[in-house]
Simulated assay, not measured.
Amino acid sequence: MREMARAYTVLGLVVGAAGIGGLWAAGVEFPVAIPPGIVILLAGALVVGLGRRWWWSPAVGVLLGLFVAVGWAVSPSGWGNLTAGRAPPWRPVRRSSWPGVLTARWSPG
């Protein structure tokens, strides 16, 4: 069960990074040249995917899901996108958080 939850967490983080990449490709402006969310989510996916011996590595997926959700909520255009009928960009990442919680719960410590 742990490996499947870890795989879902990694998949959710990668899909979240792809979603941010889609926003970037569509012309959404970001404060720097490469959106930091892409780099952060992909680095988190690497930690979760390759950090099998660390008991805390699944928690990285949970914290990154929270990071993206809070970032969307405090963004000036976040709530406006939701009321305009667009799906929030953090939906895949939010869905990747619960397997991370399960993996952290049942990881050997």
Rank of each mutant, 00 (worst) to 15 (best):
Pro92His: 02
Arg6Leu: 12
Pro35His: 03
Thr83Arg: 06
Ser97Ile: 06
Gly44Tyr: 02
Gly22Glu: 10
Gly61Tyr: 05
Leu41Arg: 06
Trp54Thr: 12
Pro76Gln: 14
Pro99Asp: 05
Pro36Ser: 14
Met4His: 03
Pro99Trp: 01
Arg91Asp: 12
Thr103Trp: 05
Phe30His: 06
Ala7Ser: 15
Tyr8Ser: 04
Leu46Ile: 14
Arg95Pro: 01
Gly21Met: 05
Gly49Thr: 12
Gly51Ile: 06
Gly21Val: 07
Gly109Pro: 12
Arg52Ser: 10
Val48Pro: 04
Val101Ala: 08
Val10Pro: 05
Val70Tyr: 02
Gly71Val: 04
Met1Gln: 09
Thr103Asp: 15
Val62Trp: 06
Gly109Lys: 13
Gly80Glu: 15
Arg53Cys: 00
Arg53Val: 06
Gly22Ala: 05
Ala45Gly: 11
Gly27Gln: 10
Gly109His: 11
Trp54Met: 09
Ala33Cys: 00
Ser96Trp: 01
Ser77Cys: 03
Ala69Val: 12
Ser77Lys: 01
Arg95Ser: 06
Ala84Asp: 15
Ala18Gly: 03
Gly85Asp: 11
Met4Trp: 09
Ser96Phe: 02
Leu82Glu: 07
Val28Gly: 00
Pro36Asp: 13
Leu50Ala: 14
Ile34Tyr: 05
Glu3Val: 04
Pro88Leu: 14
Val47Ala: 09
Arg6Tyr: 10
Gly78Cys: 07
Ala69Met: 11
Phe30Ser: 06
Leu82Val: 09
Arg2Asp: 15
Asn81Pro: 00
Arg2Thr: 15
Trp90Phe: 13
Ala18Trp: 02
Arg95His: 10
Trp98Leu: 10
Val74Ala: 04
Gly21Phe: 03
Gly16Val: 00
Gly78Ile: 10
Pro31Met: 08
Val28Ile: 03
Ala17Trp: 07
Gly22Cys: 03
Pro35Glu: 08
Tyr8Gln: 01
Gly78Asp: 14
Ala84Gly: 03
Val62Tyr: 01
Gly49Met: 11
Ala33Val: 13
Arg53Asn: 11
Leu42Val: 15
Ala25Glu: 09
Ala104Glu: 10
Trp98Lys: 00
Pro108Phe: 02
Leu64Arg: 03
Leu102Tyr: 11
Val60Cys: 05
Ser57Ile: 07
Val32Arg: 04
Leu63Arg: 04
Gly44Pro: 02
Thr9Arg: 00
Pro108Asp: 14
Ala17His: 08
Ala59Ser: 15
Ala73Glu: 14
Thr103Ala: 13
Val32Asp: 14
Ala43Arg: 00
Pro36Trp: 09
Arg2Trp: 13
Thr9Val: 13
Val74Cys: 08
Tyr8Glu: 10
Ala69Thr: 09
Val14Met: 03
Ser57Arg: 01
Gly109Trp: 13
Ala17Gln: 08
Gly80Cys: 00
Pro99Gly: 06
Glu3Asp: 14
Gly49Gln: 07
Gly37Leu: 08
Pro35Thr: 07
Val60Arg: 01
Trp54Ser: 14
Ala7Phe: 10
Ala87Asp: 12
Pro76Ile: 09
Ser77Asn: 14
Leu13Gln: 02
